[in-house]
Amino acid sequence: MRYLRPASCDEALGMLSAPDTRIVAGGTDVYPALRDRAPRFDMVDVTGIADLRKITQEDDWLRIGAAATWSELIRHPLPPAFDGLKAAAREVGSVQIQNAGTVAGNLCNASPAADGVPPLLTLDAEVEVAGPEGARRLPLGDFILGPRRTALAPGEMVTAVLVPEPPAGAVSAFAKLGSRTYLVISIAMVSVLATAAEGRIAEARVAVGACSPVAVRLSALEADLAGRPVADLNDLGLVTSAHLAPLSPLSDVRGSAAYRVDAVGTLVRRALLAALEGRNG
C-alpha cells in the first residue's frame, strides 16, 4: 500500500496503470467507505495536480477541474443558469464536506443520491476523461452507468467536468428533500433549468435524483412544459404519473418508493417556481 501524490496527469496515469490503485480527491467518499480500516490499495491523490484544481472559462465551455471543490465552485462567479448547481453545492453535506469534496468525485462515486448529478444533467454537462489511450469526452448521462458504476475503464481518470454555454437568459434552481437540515442524504432531489418569455415557459429541463439507479432527465415533462404559461406551475396536478415514468425509486430507511414519486411532483413545481418567479410555491 502506498500513498502517491502525482504532480501531473501524466504522472497520475502512469501510477494508475498499476493494479489495485484508487484515486483520492477530497476523500469524502473514499474514507467513509474504508469503515475505519486501513486501505489495502494504493491511493493516487489527484489534488496535487495544479491544473486540476482550476475552474476556468474556455471558449464556450466552463471547465471544472477534477480537483476543484464544491466551495471553489460556490465562490466562482457564474450566471443564474448555474444557481441550481450552486444551490446543490451548498447542500452537499456541510461546509466541511464542501471544502474538501470535489464535483468530479461526486460524479465518479456514482451514488444515486449524488446531489451534483441532476443540476449537471440540466446543464448538459460532459465529462472529460484521460487514460492510457488518450483523452475522451462523454455526456454525463453516458458517464454514470449505475449505482457506483461509471464508464471509466481501468487506468482512466476524470480530468474535468465541462459545461457548455447555457441558453441565454436561463434560470435554474435545485430542491432537495431530506429528513433534516444539513448533513443529509437526499430522499429525492430535483434540479431545473428554464427560460421564459412573456409569462410562458420557453424551455424547461428537469432532472431528478435519488429516485432511480442513476439520476434522469424527465423528457416527457420537459416537452409538455415548453410553451405552457408559468402560472400553470401552481396547478398541483401539473406533473402526472406518465411524466414520472422514468423513475424507479426504491423504498429504504429514508422513504418509501410511493412517497418519493409523490414528492417529486411537488419538488418539480416548486423548483420551477423558484427559478422562474424567485419563490417557493
Binding site: 476523500g27 474514507y31 474538501a100
Partner: peptide, 8 residues
C-alpha cells in the same frame, strides 16, 4: 474548516 478524519 475540514474534517481531519477525511483528509489524507
Amino acid at each position: 474548516p475540514v474534517c481531519a478524519c477525511l483528509m489524507a
